[in-house]
Nucleic acid binder design. Structure first.
Length: 282
DNA sequence: ATTGGTTCCTGCTGGC
DNA sequence: TGCCAGCAGGAACCAA
C-alpha cells in the first residue's frame, strides 16, 4: 500500500527515466479511476518536456514544460512501472490504465488494480490551492518538522493518536503501516488521546516517524500484496516491521526479553486495524 | 468545525 | 479441492 516511502521509491525510479524527456504519446485506457481523468489529459501533456518530478505527501508531482503539473496518487494498489528502450515489454495488463510514452522510447504504465488512484492536471500557480494539496499537513521529512511542531498540531485533536496520524491534515504521508510502526518505536499507545502527546513524548514520536520513514525509503518501501518499485522489483521494508501484521507474535524487544507469549495485539480503530505491543506502548 | 462511519474497487485469504 | 464471503486500505463524502 503506497504510503510516503513507497511513493518516494516510485519517485526515485521515475526521475532518471523521465526528467528531460518529452511525452510523445498518452494511451488512456480507462475514463478515470477514483475520479474521472481530465478530458484533455492527452492533448495537454503531449509534446511537453518533463522538467522535474517531486513528491508532496503521497502525491507525485510531475512538472511539465509550460508550468503544468501532472498530479498522481497511487491509492491502494497503484504502481508506476518504467520500461526503457530495449527492455522487454510485457503485454498490456487489464489494470494498465494509462501508458505514457516518450521521445526517447521510455514507457511508463500507471497500473492500479483496485482503482483508488487518481490523476489530475493543474497549473503551477494553482498547485497549492488544488483540492488534493491544499489541506495537507507538514512533510515529516522536511527540515522544519520536529516534536514541537507535531505537539502543536496534536494538541487541538480530540481523537486518539493513531487516528490523528492517519489524518493527512495533521501530518502528511503516513498510512496504516507507518502510523503503527512509528507509535511502536515511540513506545506510545495507539489509544492515547492525541492531545496528550506533548513535550518529550512528541519529540520521541517525531523522531520515530522520521526514523521509520527513512529506513523504509532505504529498503525501497514495503511490498505486501501490491507495491512494486518502478523497475518491477520488490521493496524490503516489510521484513523490518516490528508490529504491523504480526498479531500474537513477539515484538522485537519482547523477543529479546524472552517473553513467553505474543505481545502484539490487533485492535480496530475507526475501522482500521492497529497493531501494537501491549507491553511497551503506553 | 471536527469526527467517525461509509463507500468506492478488486484480489487475496480463510473457512466451510 | 473449490467456492465465496469477508477483509484490506486512502481519502472523499456525509451525517451528527
Amino acid at each position: 500500500m503506497p504510503e510516503l516511502p513507497e511513493v518516494e521509491t516510485t519517485l526515485r525510479g521515475l526521475i532518471p527515466a523521465l526528467v528531460g524527456d518529452t511525452v510523445s504519446n498518452v494511451d488512456i485506457r480507462t475514463s478515470g479511476l477514483r475520479f474521472p481523468f481530465p478530458h484533455d489529459l492527452s492533448s495537454k501533456i503531449k509534446n511537453r518536456r518533463v522538467t522535474s518530478i517531486n513528491r508532496r505527501a503521497k502525491y507525485l508531482l510531475i512538472s511539465l514544460e509550460g508550468d503544468l503539473v501532472l498530479l498522481s496518487h497511487l491509492g491502494m494498489s497503484g504502481r508506476m512501472r518504467v520500461f526503457t528502450k530495449g527492455d522487454k515489454i510485457p503485454p498490456i495488463d487489464k489494470h494498465d490504465h494509462v501508458i505514457f510514452r516518450t521521445l526517447r522510447g521510455t514507457e511508463v504504465r500507471f497500473n492500479d488494480s483496485r482503482r483508488f488512484g487518481a490523476l489530475d492536471l493543474v497549473s503551477v500557480k494553482k498547485l497549492e490551492t488544488h483540492a488534493f494539496i491544499c489541506n495537507l499537513g507538514p512533510e515529516p521529512l522536511s527540515e522544519s518538522f520536529n516534536g514541537a511542531m507535531l505537539a502543536a498540531r496534536l494538541f487541538e485533536k480530540k481523537t486518539n493518536i493513531k487516528t490523528a496520524l492517519l489524518d493527512q491534515r495533521t501530518i502528511a504521508g503516513l498510512g496504516n503501516i507507518y502510523a503503527c510502526e512509528a507509535l511502536y518505536h515511540a513506545n506510545l499507545s495507539p489509544r492515547r488521546g492525541a492531545y496528550t502527546i506533548q513535550g518529550k513524548r512528541a519529540e520521541r514520536l517525531a523522531s520515530s516517524i522520521q526514523r521509520v520513514l527513512r529506513a523504509a525509503i532505504k529498503a525501497g518501501g514495503a511490498s505486501l500484496r501490491d507495491f512494486r518499485q518502478s523497475d518491477g522489483g520488490l521493496g524490503y521494508f516489510q521484513h523490518q516491521f516490528a508490529v504491523y501484521g504480526r498479531e500474537n507474535e513477539l515484538c522485537p524487544r519482547c523477543n529479546v526479553a524472552n517473553h513467553p507469549q505474543g505481545c502484539i495485539k490487533r485492535i480496530v480503530q475507526n475501522g482500521r486495524s492497529t497493531f501494537h505491543c501491549s507491553q511497551w506502548q503506553r
